[in-house]
Amino acid sequence: MNIFRLCGDMSHLAAIIILLLKMWKTRSVAGISGKSQILFATVFTARYLDLFTSFISIYNTCMKVFFIGTVYFTIYLIYMKFKATYDSNHDSFRVEFLIVPVGGLAFLVNHEFAPLEIIWTFSIYLESVAILPQLFMISKTGEAETITSHYLFALGSYRALYLCNWIYRYYAEGFFDLIAVVAGVVQTILYCDFFYLYITKVMKGKKISLPA
């Protein structure tokens, strides 16, 4: 464990807590993409299959349980409890255009052609594009609530911090995982446009409103 990875995990934790607070306090899921949350649930389920078979640390297990638990709770809030406030018309990204290519790529490019390894690789590739339905929804509605912007900033920062973690691990431990790094770079690049808007607008107290 290193400071970059710890900050990354804390940023990820903060993102999930911000999202839950937004939903619980406003009792609304307006502006939140249910499809992205379903993709995140798929990512965590696929990646944490070893939750019961390999123990790494209390921290690792607790975080995995928390991430899986909260993402399914988020889906429950979106599609059941606060269903009336879910904006399905704007949440129209065709996720099959993500899952099929990512699934195919996981079969072709992986560290080892073994079931658990391919599923892990699928979760890594899927995570890098899982935010697209959410960003697409914001571009369609033309704006994002400030709290949603904070959620996205924390979520984008988490993988950017993981990139720092991988740089550190390469020099400190000689550790390098090309698949995780490439997917992490793609994932972070997808947020760049949003990071620019967040820093130039939200930091100055304005709302993010894309030219519709």
Binding site: I56, F175, D177, A180
Partner: peptide
């Protein structure tokens, strides 16, 4: 050299 995969990460 096959690098160890990042399974200890979240």
């Amino acid at each position: 050299k096959q690098w160890p995969s990042s399974k200890d990460e979240l």
